[in-house]
Design a protein around this nucleic acid. Structure first.
Lengths: 154, 154
DNA sequence: GACAATCAGTACCACTCTGGTACAGTTTCG
DNA sequence: CGAAACTGTACCAGAGTGGTACTGATTGTC
């Protein structure tokens, strides 16, 4: 269906929230209540973000999560990789558990080179957008050039 | 999962195949056998393409489908609209059956403006890629500028 | 005119993924 | 000790996906 899952969406929201309160310890409850989202979902995604090393956690009373990194060093692409898992627009380049290609007509497929180019362009665009951009809600003006470069090299 | 469905993928492949044999009447069976894909799937997607007006159909013996349009006038965006249906990266801008927004915190949501910008940029990129590009397997070099323009206006 | 090839339409099903919930455990502070 | 908060795991209902089946309509050929 060509859309990110809600869990991923929640993760981006939570990360932005923490980034805006950089250094503060924020409970999952606070995030959930701010966005009016179910607490168990928010805790689930915050656990994942902690697992991925994007946020720090602190247990116990007055515990919570803290964003202590550099918002300009974390990209949307990295967050999507963690939250959404490995993804590709089409399975052309995806591999199964044993590392071999899923698509059986891969080498002969006329759309592969093209779709993988689009795939790379989109991923490249995501990699040019930092958490700082997300938190500000503004688009960096240099995105286009990187996206163009990715398309040229397909 | 952020990927197009297999049916959509099949549809793009079938359209490319027909575009390469422009004017010829090609049976669903031939397309299915060429790509080693299940015939019922190909017929299903070809019906959809016919319904959408992208290909012509001819029944009976020696019948099949024909692409008779201008490959440079049909865009990947149009094909995705038909095959994938209405889509958005996030539900921010999506509406329910009665036309009102799905997202309850839409106006207050800090990620909306940003995600909808990315959304538009990707859609714009898809709209710049024509069926002729797809069939050639090459990326048009002007894509970047349109994508950039879409991002600036968010 | 019978028959086969082919498209048209619809219905159905097994499987997977998604969104959400539940619950028992661990840590920390007062 | 008890409450607040994170950790880990398991579970479930609903939706979506990929695929199949079947009946009907159209058309060319023998």
């Amino acid at each position: 269906m060509l859309k990110i899952s809600k869990l991923t969406d929640y993760g981006l929201l939570a990360t932005m929230y923490l980034a805006r309160k950089q250094g503060e310890v924020v409970s999952a409850r606070e995030v959930a209540e701010f966005y009016h989202l179910p607490l168990p979902m928010i805790t689930k995604v915050l656990k994942a973000l902690h697992h991925g090393g994007f946020v720090e956690s602190r247990r116990g009373v007055a515990g919570g999560y803290t964003f202590a990194g550099d918002p300009t060093a974390i990209t949307l692409g990295q967050l999507l990789d963690l939250l959404e898992g490995p993804w590709d627009l089409v399975e052309c380049e995806s591999t199964n558990d044993s590392g071999s290609a899923i698509c059986s007509i891969r080498t002969a497929c006329p759309s592969r080179r093209f779709m993988s180019g689009i795939n790379r362009a989109i991923k490249s665009a995501f990699d040019q957008i930092t958490l700082a951009d997300l938190a500000r809600g503004e688009m960096p003006m240099s995105v286009d050039k990187k996206m163009f470069a990715a398309m040229e090299t397909m």
